[in-house]
Amino acid sequence: MQTQDKTMPVNIGISEEDRKQIAEGLSRLLADTYSLYLKTHNFHWNVTGPMFQTLHLMFETQYTELAMAVDQIAERIRAVGYPAPGTYSDFAKLSSIQETPGVPKANDMIRLLVEGQEAVVRTARSIFPVVEKVNDEPTADLLTQRMQIHEKNAWMLRSLLEE
């Protein structure tokens, strides 16, 4: 991972090595978030069945929120002095969320999105040790917000599977 142009060094009270670790973690979070965005948007387009209206609207709400989140995460990577990944190949290498081939049934879509939401939470949580060590409150705040949103989304999706 390369740092940004060194014409003006980043001097925010966090060492370059720690900023690099934070940027690497945030890059994984960005890749997971974008992968989940794409999966959720795909499912929004292709969901069918008796829960169509409910799922179509829920998926739209979730992918819209994810679209805004990728910008926040990428901007934080830039703020700590590193370029944000932005290609499908970058995201494929960095993401813990796998693509889903074909068009699954609605209940399978729900299960896959629960798994995706929880994967994003785990990725966000994995960044905390270095963030806390260097008192990077802006990144900690971003991670906390992301975890709250994804844990709530996972709960709401999971509740649709209860009988």
Rank of each mutant, 00 (worst) to 15 (best):
T100Q: 13
F128M: 15
E115I: 08
S95Y: 10
I97V: 12
R111W: 06
L112V: 03
E99Y: 05
P129I: 10
A92N: 08
R111V: 15
E115K: 13
D108T: 13
P129G: 06
D108M: 11
I97L: 09
I127Y: 03
R111M: 15
G102F: 02
Q117Y: 11
L113R: 02
V130F: 06
E118N: 14
T100F: 07
N107S: 13
T100I: 13
R122D: 14
R111P: 03
G102Y: 03
R122P: 00
G102L: 05
V130M: 11
K93Q: 15
E99H: 08
I127Q: 04
P101N: 10
R125Y: 12
F91I: 02
M109E: 08
P104C: 07
A124E: 00
I110K: 05
Q117H: 14
S96Q: 11
K93Y: 11
N107G: 08
P129W: 08
K93T: 14
T100N: 08
E99K: 13
M109D: 03
R122L: 12
E118V: 07
M109A: 09
S126M: 06
D90C: 09
F128N: 07
G102T: 02
A119L: 06
L112R: 12
I127D: 00
K105P: 04
A106I: 07
T123A: 03
S96G: 12
I110C: 03
A106W: 14
T100E: 12
G102W: 00
R125I: 06
V114K: 07
R111K: 15
D108Y: 02
I97K: 04
V120I: 14
L94Y: 00
A92L: 13
L113W: 03
E118R: 14
K105C: 06
L94P: 00
